[in-house]
Amino acid sequence: MNNVIEMSHPLIKHKISLLRDKNTGTNEFRKLIEEIGILMGYEALRDLPLEDVEVETPIETCMTPMISGKKLAIVPILRAGLGMVNGILALVPSAKVGHIGLYRDEETHEPHEYYCKLPDPIDQRLIVVLDPMLATGGSAIAAIDFIKAHGGKSIKFMSIIAAPEGVERLAKAHPDVQIYCGNIDRQLNKDAYICPGLGDAGDRIFGTI
């Protein structure tokens, strides 16, 4: 799967290990999600297009590179994806933020949309979809389907923990989307939770366990 990138940076791996610990409290968990978002975003955005612009330094005027074209669009999948937003905004404060709300049927594990609001014009932006957990892949596929239906073309997906089943399903459904994973775990269990995983990311971010 050429469109899948698993992170190898020691800081990312270390912080993911802290996330996994059931004794990590809500405040620390939230900070770690944001910090990992910054580190992963640094890698995922390394191919942003640049253009030379004229800048006057205290010494002279020069041509120097800045990000070109329409700005970035960050689209978290509600609600857990919200935890990663500030990490990306720390890197690109001018980014626009959209939201996609999905809920998972507890019997079929399939996603259903309840909210979708995207920056306009979405077709001219690089879109980074955020969800800390990539389990079955259903929510990620549905979110990207919605974005493409609204005209989105250039899309990346970022998850902190992923199951191999979800990675394979998403990569096949959207081979044009680059998938960035902090760690690809062992497998899904019978309840479609990632093993060893870190539990429910949304509950741990928002303290609703």
Rank of each mutant, 00 (worst) to 15 (best):
M1G: 14
V4H: 08
I5L: 13
I5N: 12
M7I: 13
P10F: 12
L11Y: 08
I12L: 07
K13N: 12
K13C: 09
K13A: 14
K13D: 10
L19V: 08
L19N: 06
R20F: 12
R20Y: 11
K22W: 09
K22G: 05
N23G: 02
N23E: 14
T24I: 11
T24E: 08
G25Y: 01
G25H: 06
R30D: 03
K31Y: 01
E34V: 03
E34A: 10
G37Y: 01
L39A: 09
E43M: 05
E43P: 09
L45C: 13
L45T: 08
R46E: 00
D47F: 06
D47K: 00
L48N: 00
L48C: 09
D52V: 00
D52N: 12
T57G: 13
T57S: 14
E60I: 12
E60W: 05
T61C: 11
M63F: 15
P65G: 13
M66T: 14
I67E: 08
S68G: 13
G69M: 10
G69Q: 02
G69R: 03
K70C: 05
A73H: 10
A73L: 13
I74P: 02
P76K: 01
G81V: 01
G81T: 05
L89Y: 08
L89C: 07
L91Y: 07
V92T: 07
S94D: 12
V97L: 07
G98P: 00
H99V: 03
I100S: 05
G101W: 12
G101S: 13
Y103P: 05
D105N: 15
D105V: 10
D105Y: 02
E107C: 10
T108Y: 10
H109L: 14
H109N: 03
E110R: 15
E110L: 15
Y114S: 09
Y115Q: 10
C116W: 07
K117T: 08
P121F: 01
D123Y: 14
D123P: 04
Q124I: 01
L126W: 07
V129K: 05
L130K: 03
D131T: 03
M133R: 08
G138V: 01
I141R: 09
I141G: 00
A142Q: 15
A142M: 15
A143T: 01
D145M: 04
F146V: 13
I147K: 04
I147M: 03
A149Y: 02
G151D: 03
K153Y: 02
K153P: 09
I155T: 06
K156D: 01
M158D: 07
S159F: 03
S159H: 05
I161S: 08
P164V: 13
E165H: 11
V167T: 00
V167Q: 06
V167K: 03
R169M: 14
R169Y: 14
L170S: 11
K172G: 11
A173G: 09
A173V: 12
A173H: 09
H174K: 11
H174F: 11
V177I: 04
V177T: 07
Q178N: 06
I179C: 02
I179L: 12
C181K: 04
G182C: 07
G182Q: 05
N183M: 14
N183L: 15
D185S: 01
Q187W: 11
Q187S: 07
L188N: 09
N189Q: 11
K190V: 01
D191Q: 14
Y193T: 02
G197Y: 06
A201C: 01
A201Q: 07
D203W: 06
R204H: 13
I205M: 02
I205W: 00
F206C: 08
G207V: 02
T208Y: 13
T208D: 13
T208L: 13
I209A: 06
